[in-house]
Simulated scan of single mutants.
Amino acid sequence: MGARPDITAWRPPVEGIDEVFHAFFADHAYPMHTHDAWTLLIVDQGLVRYDLDRHEHGAPSSVVTLLPPHVPHNGDAATPEGFRKRVLYLDTRQIDAALIGRAVDRPVLHDQRLRHRVHQLHRTLERRGDELEAQSRLALVSERLARHLRDQLDVPPPVHDRRVARELRELLDQRFVQGLTLREAADRLHVHQTHLVRAFSREFGMAPHQYLTGRRVDLARRLLLGGMRAPDVASAAGFYDQSHFSRHFKRVVGTSPGHYARTAKDVTGYRRSSEPRTNAA
């Protein structure tokens, strides 16, 4: 009997991703089946062998595999130790249906930059509260997948759009506490989501989600110095929960919210005790 499968699956609150599936299989073999979504696969351990449209393929850890919707495929381990994989099932609207034939012909993509971006997207999806970051990463991944299938990988995407970048910054300034989705911003500004991410990043040297997080951390600092309790600050500044707040605050400021607040109180107390005394009249 082989090792017990290790499986984690969830549906993230990110438009465009139907399911996230992480799994280790020692001896499981998938029968022929189809999905009604694009299957974006990276392998972290072992080698997966599969048939797609009567042609055999392999998925080692160095590549990205994109299986089109409604096309039968199977899969099993090509090595004795089994395989560990991470899969994103993407909504069919993420990639033009006209590219399904291209994906059938060449589902294996040799692109280390793309693989790293898919890995980063998985890491982001494991954390609640970072949905804008996940949406931005998904937009870039979907764009690069489509460029692969269209043989346009060497064509640089347009990114010079200062007007759009500054209008997005205004939107983020207005909505940084309650947040907004990338689709909402794209609809408001009448541009494609990927163009929005690229234009903002080029103009301001950071991605939209980084700017939004920075605004939230700045507000959190002011609230902490004003005496608000850290758990209350997390909600007031727009963070998903205390863990989400602490992680980003420490990454930006260099210390935890609680330590930051305690240090501020100590300094305030020191200054007060150093003030010159006045004699009573």
Rank of each mutant, 00 (worst) to 15 (best):
D232F: 04
L219N: 02
T92F: 02
A37M: 02
R115F: 08
V87R: 11
R222Y: 10
V252K: 07
R198C: 00
H73W: 09
T194N: 08
V118L: 04
R175C: 13
V43D: 03
A103I: 06
H195Q: 03
G214Y: 08
L153D: 11
E19T: 06
D187N: 10
A77D: 01
A103V: 07
R137Q: 06
L41K: 02
H195Y: 11
R84K: 12
G269Y: 04
Q178T: 14
A3V: 14
S273Q: 07
R123W: 15
A207R: 15
A261V: 07
P157S: 02
A3E: 14
L196Q: 10
L140Y: 10
A146L: 07
L52P: 00
L47M: 05
L149Q: 07
R183S: 07
Y89H: 11
L90F: 15
L219I: 07
S273N: 06
T255P: 09
D161K: 06
D241T: 03
E131V: 14
R162T: 12
L223K: 01
Q94I: 10
R102N: 11
H160G: 02
G46N: 01
R144D: 04
Y30Q: 03
H35Y: 05
V197D: 00
P60Y: 04
S256V: 14
R169P: 03
V118N: 01
R102E: 08
A78T: 02
A186Q: 09
A281Y: 13
H110A: 00
A139R: 06
V164F: 07
E126N: 07
R106E: 06
L149R: 04
H192R: 08
V155K: 05
Y260N: 02
L138G: 01
S273Y: 11
V217M: 00
E56H: 11
D76H: 15
A237L: 01
V252E: 04
T181Q: 06
R137H: 07
R221C: 03
E56M: 08
R84D: 15
M206G: 08
A77C: 08
H55N: 04
A264N: 06
V159G: 09
G254A: 04
R54F: 09
R271N: 11
I7S: 04
R102C: 05
T124I: 04
D154L: 03
R93K: 10
H116V: 14
R229Y: 10
A26I: 12
P72S: 05
D53R: 09
E56N: 08
P231C: 00
L223R: 03
D151H: 15
F83Q: 14
F249S: 02
H248S: 02
K265S: 12
R198E: 01
H259I: 13
R137N: 00
D130H: 15
V197G: 03
H209I: 10
